[in-house]
Amino acid sequence: MAEVRIRVNGATATLDIEPQVSLLDALREHLGLTGAKKGCAQGACGACTVLADGERIVSCLALAVQYEGREITTVEGLADGERLHPLQKAFIAHDGLQCGYCTPGQLCSAIGMLAEHRAGAPSAVTEQPPGLPEAPSGPPPVLSEAEIRERMSGNLCRCGAYNGIVAAIQEVAATDAEMTR
């Protein structure tokens, strides 16, 4: 057993855990934060996506001990009290969810993605050879539907709510762009 301190949603959490406990299980089983979901525990579905110091990661393949001292944000940390994060509102308005199981991961991933985009990070679509439909021409990346889809492809949704998710992200990204202009 090791004592591990991690900042979770702004508060320090102290865990007494074995090193084989994943960050996801630490959140779900030890801290009672069940928002991050377990869909595969193989890094293949994105349902467990959380933010580590603002960067999106899959918490199922992260050992909790390795994240000692890091700042983790889960879906429970997105809303400001009763006030939903704009992306949460947009997901509801565009029906970017059905069963809801992938939703926390999609939300955290989208927030991380928007930050990456603001920082100018390219995607495979940005860098793709011309000729593909919808491929924009080089940086700075325009957050087109194709860009959002590529950047969000690590988050599977079996209900098929993809269109609504993309629409919700696009709406928030547009507001984002307005604000930073």
């Binding site: 069940t34 991050a36 889960t74 879906v75 429970e76 939903l84 949460q88 509801i92 969810l97 926390p104």
Partner: peptide, 9 residues
């Protein structure tokens, strides 16, 4: 149930 599903509740 949109609120519950988008907040992790």
């Amino acid at each position: 149930d949109g609120r519950e599903k988008t907040t992790g509740a």
